[in-house]
């Protein structure tokens, strides 16, 4: 069994803070969701995960995007880059980076659930037979980054950094039960110390379609993990759904296997 080899101290540097574990779930209504899985090149396999998590073979990345109509944080869009892994024997993902379109959503995702979220412009658009997603953020360190074409000047004159662009074609209807969702493990500073916070979203889809997708641009460094190289798209789906994010019940020590390092928080 292989385990992650990333330095917990280095991962902790940008981790969000959860001052107190919440007890209430957050309900997101009228969500257009996009889910994409892509294989990663082998050097990323162990190096992007903390020792408490286990990579899969082949290494893979799960990309999620939501366009939310209603929520306690108002309408917003968000995107999450996650590495597929196992916590003990359970299927999980490790969230390496996230973005949200509003201040309230950024604050809520960080402080309640530990998603390492930054503010960004996110466009998730559904056309008749195509879906496209574009994520860009104000450049926070001067601008000369990769990630393909697409940097642009923002309204304040600073350059915008294109973090992600993808397009997906030819939606093919599936049953709503055909799409499997896997929970996130989010590294955060918590009242128990630095922990992986287990976040399991509940989905109530009314429509699910599978598409053929292409990643046009992906700036791994902008998502916080330069080693990620999603070179082989496995699948892409879009859905219409309501999502509930329950309050987290378990956390894990990022340096220990789940069997030894799991704690219940409520």
């Amino acid at each position: 069994m292989i385990s992650g080899t990333a330095s917990v101290d280095e991962l902790a540097a940008g981790a969000p803070e959860i001052a107190a574990f919440g007890t209430e779930s957050v309900r997101l209504c009228g969500v257009t969701g996009l889910s994409l899985v892509a294989e990663l090149r082998r050097p990323a396999r162990e190096a992007v995960l903390p020792p408490g998590l286990h990579p899969i073979v082949p290494p893979a990345m799960s990309l999620l995007a939501w366009d939310v109509s209603e929520s306690p944080w108002g309408a917003f869009s968000a995107a999450f880059v996650r590495v597929v892994c196992r916590s003990g024997a359970r299927a999980r993902t490790f969230c390496v980076g996230a973005a949200a379109s509003t201040h309230d959503a950024v604050a809520g995702l960080r402080s309640q659930f530990g998603f390492p979220t930054r503010q960004a412009e996110i466009s998730l658009r559904r056309h008749y037979d195509e879906v496209d997603l574009r994520v860009s953020a104000e450049d926070d360190d001067g601008g000369s980054h990769g990630g393909g074409e697409g940097g642009s000047a923002g309204s304040n004159g600073r350059s915008n950094r294109l973090m992600l662009a993808l397009s997906a074609l030819d939606p093919d209807p599936l049953s709503v039960g055909d799409l499997q969702h896997v929970g996130s493990m989010n590294l955060a500073h918590t009242p128990l110390g630095l922990r992986l916070v287990q976040v399991e979203t509940h989905h109530e889809p009314s429509r699910v379609e599978r598409l053929a997708a292409r990643i046009d641009a992906f700036d791994a460094a902008a998502w916080g993990q330069p080693l990620l190289d999603p070179y082989w798209v496995v699948s892409c789906s879009v859905s219409l759904e309501d999502i509930e994010i329950p309050a987290s019940r378990f956390v894990c020590d990022p340096a220990l296997p789940a069997a030894e390092g799991t704690e219940r928080v409520q």
Partner: peptide, 23 residues
């Protein structure tokens, strides 16, 4: 335990690829 854990660490089709064929 070791065998079962190594099985759980496989990447199952249903997890990677939404399809009617793997329920």
């Amino acid at each position: 335990g070791a065998f079962s854990m190594s099985n759980a660490h496989l990447y199952f089709t249903r997890e990677a690829y939404p399809t009617r064929a793997y329920q």
